[in-house]
Amino acid sequence: MAASLTRRLVLGIYAAIIVVPLVVVVAGSFKTTQQLFRSPFGLPSSLAPTNYRTVLTDASMSTAFVNSVIVTGAAVALTLAIGSLASYGLARIPGWRGWVLYGFLVLGMAVPAQSNMIPQYVLFQNLGLLDSRVGLILIEIVAALPVAVFILTGFMRTLPRELFEAGLVDGAGPWRTYRSIALPVSLPSLAATAIFLFVIQWNDLLYPLLFIHDPTKTTLPLALLNFQGEFLTNYPLLFTGVIVASTPLVIAYVLLQRYFVAGMTAGSVKG
């Protein structure tokens, strides 16, 4: 009885620590700075979206939002496509060759982004890919490929060999085996990986910070960071920015929670 009371107490306190800041942020996005400072816990006196209007017009968050949708959408789709093809090949090339190629690709997970960003910056500059959404999409794909290949190949290797050999007997080449067997079977792992990629690519700050200086090409995390200099301690506006940037993730999380947990766990188990 005492144990269950302690349990409830601990969980209740932790739930409050998670929920209270989030509620204050949501309520705060409808307040003025003075209202927020005077009563941070109070309900907003009106639900007029004044801050939202400011954030989406003056602060060009709407441009950033559109850019984030384009860049993340393209990066997730292409990382998945390239990663899925690679994982199929790597799982099926027999013997040491498949493993060596796999090891070479996955070794990239041990390289922190800061360790190759400088030559990458120079390379992208020479290719005219700075301040370009295409360039940003490209670097996001490249940065995520090792972990995507790691997750997807791990799944492909769990598939029984007979599944593919059945296709070979029927005279189907690797492409048809991929399309009609491997791809449909791996849909759940692709969905989990897609969510994982969505979270890291939507939230990524480093590459936009490095490669994007043109305000019309900026993505949400960078726009948010630049906000800070502009509005300094106008917390209601910062909160509004946070909500605008997080809403797609939270909606997706509510709808697809299982895939979030699976995907983000697979991404962290990389060790």
């Binding site: 390239i82 990663g83 093809l85 690679a86 199929y88 090949g89 790597l90 099926r92 090339i93 190629l101 070479f104 690709l105 990239g108 490209l138 794909i141 490249v142 490929l145 090792p146 290949v149 690797p174 991929y178």
Partner: peptide
């Protein structure tokens, strides 16, 4: 061998 090729080239 063509399957991992796009990933390898980019990488």
């Amino acid at each position: 061998w063509l399957f991992p090729l796009p990933a390898l080239v980019l990488y």
